[in-house]
């Protein structure tokens, strides 16, 4: 963002562009994908280098890797139950994919791929497709009757209950993706806006420079808040996936 004729362009940061020169351009490889690869490599590197000592008493990095493992493992176990083991790698991948997107976006020159509704919606749809697949695989077609028309419901209410349940079910990926998307976009838009304020005010002489401390401090505080949100949204995404998986395995 150029300092001189600063105007609020809060959305430019979300613009996609191909990276890696003509090679990336020819296959439409965007910076979002670059950061996905980066995030994935970071997670793999953490585990690989963390677990290299294979120590019984873990060092710092190994403790971090083990904490990540234990955190998701516990989440699966708590939310899904014994069957949670099977879904553990999936939930782990999902959590860290989202977390890395959220966190890398907070770095300078970072790109938040989780701020793209297309990405979050694709993730959410994937989750719902997998959840539905698990439900059908586990319970067969009884899943549909069980889920969309629960036992004990008066038959007369069927025309009301079934559409509501279907809408409710289909709204899962929407709410899942909108929540993550909205949180990420809001945070980054505010960063950009406050940062632009800083630049604009600093360009307006001494008084403005002093006044620029305000939005600057706000941005620092916001950074802390956004770190929290980054983690929390990844957590929410993962735990809701676990809850949906629980419902799929146990039918409510």
């Amino acid at each position: 963002m150029a300092g001189g004729e600063a105007k609020i362009d809060a959305l430019g940061q979300f613009k996609l562009a191909t990276v890696l020169g003509p090679l990336g351009g020819s296959v439409n490889f965007t910076q979002a994908n670059l950061f996905m690869v980066l995030g994935g490599l970071l997670v793999l590197a953490l585990i690989h280098y963390g677990m290299k000592p294979r120590a019984v008493v873990p060092g710092r990095l190994q403790a971090l890797a083990e904490m990540a493992y234990g955190f998701i493992d516990d989440m699966c176990h708590e939310q899904i139950g014994h069957e949670g083991r099977r879904f553990f790698p999936f939930v782990f991948t999902l959590f860290f994919f989202v977390l890395m997107g959220n966190l890398l976006g907070l770095l300078p020159y970072g790109f938040t791929y989780t701020s793209h509704i297309a990405v979050t919606f694709a993730l959410a749809v994937m989750v719902i497709v997998i959840v539905t697949g698990v439900a059908i695989f586990t319970h067969g077609t009884t899943f549909f009757t069980e889920y969309f028309f629960p036992k004990g419901t008066p038959v007369a209410l069927a025309p009301l209950v079934i559409p509501i349940e279907v809408i409710s079910y289909l709204s899962r990926p929407v709410s899942l993706s909108i929540r993550l998307f909205a949180n990420m976009v809001a945070g980054h838009v505010m960063f950009e806006v406050f940062a632009t304020f800083v630049v604009m005010m600093a360009g307006a002489g001494l008084l403005g420079t002093i006044g620029a401390i305000g939005p600057m401090a706000l941005n620092v505080a916001l950074m802390g808040f956004e770190l929290l949100v980054a983690f929390l949204q990844a957590y929410v995404f993962a735990i809701l996936t676990c809850i949906y998986l629980h419902d799929a395995v146990h039918l409510h």
Partner: peptide, 22 residues
């Protein structure tokens, strides 16, 4: 395109994590 690439990256990450890292 980013979604398509993202899907592939996710798949590779999933395989790497579930088969090798975890």
């Amino acid at each position: 395109a980013q979604v398509v690439w993202g899907g592939m990256i996710f798949l590779v990450l999933y395989l790497a994590l579930s088969r090798w890292a975890l």
